[in-house]
Amino acid sequence: MADMNRDRPLSPFMIGPYYRPQMTSMSSILVRITGIASFGTAFLVVCWLLAAAFSEGAFESLNWLMTSFLGDIVMFLASWAIWYHMLGRLRHVIWDFGYCLDVPISEKLGWGMFIGATVLALFTAIVV
């Protein structure tokens, strides 16, 4: 049973005075956020394709948004989110096999995810 006489909370969800953020916890939270953001971007792309199927006016409006500078930024951030999420899932597969579980290595994997997603998103933006 949990010790109820502690001065700190039982869960790490109170970031601030009770819980010091760690690279592993922040990268895990960011994996969840990028998953949700990827879903939102997929919805935007589906709306773009549906607009193309339904009417020329609707497609022109969404096509203007998707091909504008703002659309380029959204698509770049979406590609970063997809790469980060994919690298996060790969990290969890490595952990599931029992490798790289030490804290210093886990922190390096978190930084590797962030740097790797940035490099891969830039590569995607340049090539595509």
Results as ranks from 00 to 15, higher is better:
residue 82 I to H: 11
residue 70 L to H: 09
residue 60 E to T: 08
residue 105 I to S: 01
residue 59 F to W: 02
residue 55 S to C: 07
residue 123 F to G: 04
residue 122 L to G: 13
residue 43 F to L: 11
residue 95 W to M: 07
residue 13 F to A: 10
residue 120 L to N: 01
residue 18 Y to H: 14
residue 43 F to A: 14
residue 76 F to Y: 02
residue 114 F to A: 15
residue 2 A to W: 09
residue 114 F to H: 01
residue 52 A to T: 02
residue 126 I to K: 14
residue 103 V to E: 08
residue 125 A to R: 08
residue 102 D to Q: 14
residue 98 G to R: 07
residue 83 W to N: 05
residue 14 M to G: 11
residue 23 M to G: 00
residue 46 V to G: 02
residue 89 R to A: 15
residue 91 R to D: 09
residue 43 F to M: 13
residue 78 A to M: 10
residue 109 L to W: 12
residue 124 T to L: 01
residue 66 M to V: 03
residue 63 N to C: 00
residue 43 F to R: 00
residue 46 V to K: 01
residue 102 D to N: 13
residue 18 Y to M: 08
residue 55 S to V: 01
residue 108 K to G: 01
residue 37 A to D: 07
residue 16 G to P: 07
residue 117 A to L: 14
residue 40 G to C: 12
residue 126 I to S: 13
residue 122 L to F: 14
residue 31 V to R: 06
residue 117 A to Y: 07
residue 45 V to T: 10
residue 36 I to D: 06
residue 95 W to H: 07
residue 81 A to V: 11
residue 95 W to A: 05
residue 104 P to E: 04
residue 63 N to F: 03
residue 119 V to I: 15
residue 74 V to D: 07
residue 15 I to V: 04
residue 120 L to Q: 09
residue 47 C to P: 10
residue 18 Y to Q: 04
residue 28 S to P: 08
residue 57 G to S: 02
residue 15 I to K: 03
residue 48 W to F: 03
residue 72 D to H: 11
residue 118 T to N: 07
residue 122 L to C: 15
residue 51 A to D: 12
residue 41 T to I: 13
residue 111 W to F: 10
residue 105 I to W: 04
residue 31 V to S: 06
residue 46 V to W: 08
residue 52 A to Y: 13
residue 90 L to K: 04
residue 81 A to C: 15
residue 124 T to A: 12
residue 93 V to H: 03
residue 110 G to T: 03
residue 127 V to E: 12
residue 89 R to I: 12
residue 9 P to A: 04
residue 58 A to M: 12
residue 69 F to E: 11
residue 29 I to Q: 09
residue 121 A to Q: 10
residue 95 W to P: 11
residue 89 R to Y: 12
residue 5 N to H: 11
residue 53 A to N: 14
residue 101 L to D: 08
residue 21 P to R: 01
residue 17 P to F: 02
residue 29 I to F: 10
residue 53 A to Q: 15
residue 69 F to I: 05
residue 5 N to S: 11
residue 110 G to L: 08
residue 34 T to P: 11
residue 51 A to T: 04
residue 105 I to Y: 09
residue 30 L to Q: 01
residue 7 D to S: 15
residue 74 V to Q: 05
residue 105 I to K: 00
residue 54 F to M: 13
residue 91 R to C: 03
residue 86 M to E: 13
residue 57 G to L: 00
residue 63 N to M: 09
residue 22 Q to P: 00
residue 30 L to M: 06
residue 53 A to Y: 11
residue 128 V to F: 06
residue 31 V to T: 10
residue 63 N to H: 05
residue 9 P to M: 09
residue 25 S to A: 10
residue 65 L to D: 03
residue 85 H to T: 07
residue 18 Y to W: 08
residue 103 V to R: 15
residue 103 V to F: 13
